[in-house]
């Protein structure tokens, strides 16, 4: 390194561009080798037989869409509406002037973000034992929506908090100096602006919630209440074949990938209008 005589020719032999080319070539070779290995050693017939069997896949129709996807959307939309409203309430409590409200909101948010969602669902199944005579309204749908809503609200609360805090202080001052009460200023001026700002992260929240709706499986649902994951799992057990789970997975993607694109589109547009 200190000797310029050896450093000079070394640089001449391997220019940065050449180095880059070699590095790229090596990467292609590794990739090709990996592909060859997979093609040679994978048992394609067995894989196709177990994961993509046409006859089994056709057994999933039409219930895949008319029952399973329909229920997934019911759980997800119901849980989303619950978490949206409850999350907004939590965010307002989190930013309240009244200290105990802040404590309650912080406690709730920390607990429900810190626990696995699955645990919440398992606890919900024990609710009737803990509170004799208590029934979650809406039956199985109600239980699923409750579980998703309780967990989703903790995340949505933090999304709303960020949005509410991003509304400039001058907005409240303008509203108050026009004679609006603090509550009126929040409802008329702050919350509508906050909601507009949180549309992209909220879309992502909905995608997360849609995937979490698979946890309804642990509520012990059956028959007309099954959603995609449970539906796929039941059929897979019945035929001792993984194809229905693959089919259920594809159905999730049909919904989640466009929503993901929508969220990033909205994100981009937000940058332009503000």
């Amino acid at each position: 390194m200190a000797d310029p005589k050896t450093a000079e020719p070394a640089r001449a032999r391997l220019s940065p561009r050449k180095k880059q080319r070699i590095s790229r070539a090596v990467q292609y070779v590794v990739l090709a080798a990996a592909l060859v290995a997979v093609v040679m050693y994978a048992d394609w017939q067995s894989l196709a037989e177990n994961f993509a069997k046409g006859e089994v896949a056709s057994e999933a129709l039409p219930e895949l869409f008319t029952v399973a996807l329909r229920n997934t959307i019911i759980y997800a939309v119901g849980g989303f509406v619950f978490s949206f409203l409850f999350g907004l309430l939590l965010a307002l409590m989190r930013l309240s002037q009244v200290r105990p409200y802040r404590w309650i909101a912080i406690l709730y948010i920390e607990i429900f973000r810190g626990l696995p969602a699955l645990l919440i669902f398992l606890l919900i199944t024990f609710l009737p034992l803990a509170l004799p005579g208590f029934q979650v309204p809406g039956g199985t749908y109600g239980q699923g929506i409750l579980g998703l809503g309780l967990v989703g609200a903790a995340y949505q609360a933090e999304v709303f908090r960020a949005g509410l805090q991003a509304v400039p202080k001058g907005q409240v001052e303008a509203a108050r100096s026009l004679g609006m009460s603090a509550t009126r200023a929040q409802i008329t001026v702050v919350i509508p602006q906050a909601i507009r700002m949180v549309i992209p992260p909220t879309t992502n929240q909905f995608v997360a919630l849609l995937k979490d709706s698979s946890l309804v499986l642990f509520l012990g649902v059956s028959g007309e209440y099954v959603e995609l994951a449970k539906f796929g799992n039941d059929l897979a057990s019945q035929y001792a074949n993984a194809t229905p789970i693959m089919v259920a997975g594809l159905t999730y993607l049909i919904v989640t990938i466009p929503l993901g694109y929508l969220a990033s589109r909205l994100e981009g547009r937000k940058g332009r209008t503000r």
Binding site: P168, G170, Q171, A174, S177, V189
Partner: peptide
Amino acid sequence: IDAVRRHIGMVFQQFNLFPH
């Protein structure tokens, strides 16, 4: 104070119009 502010117009440096 809300009743008092109704009768006092205020104009800010940053306008503070409601953007929505």
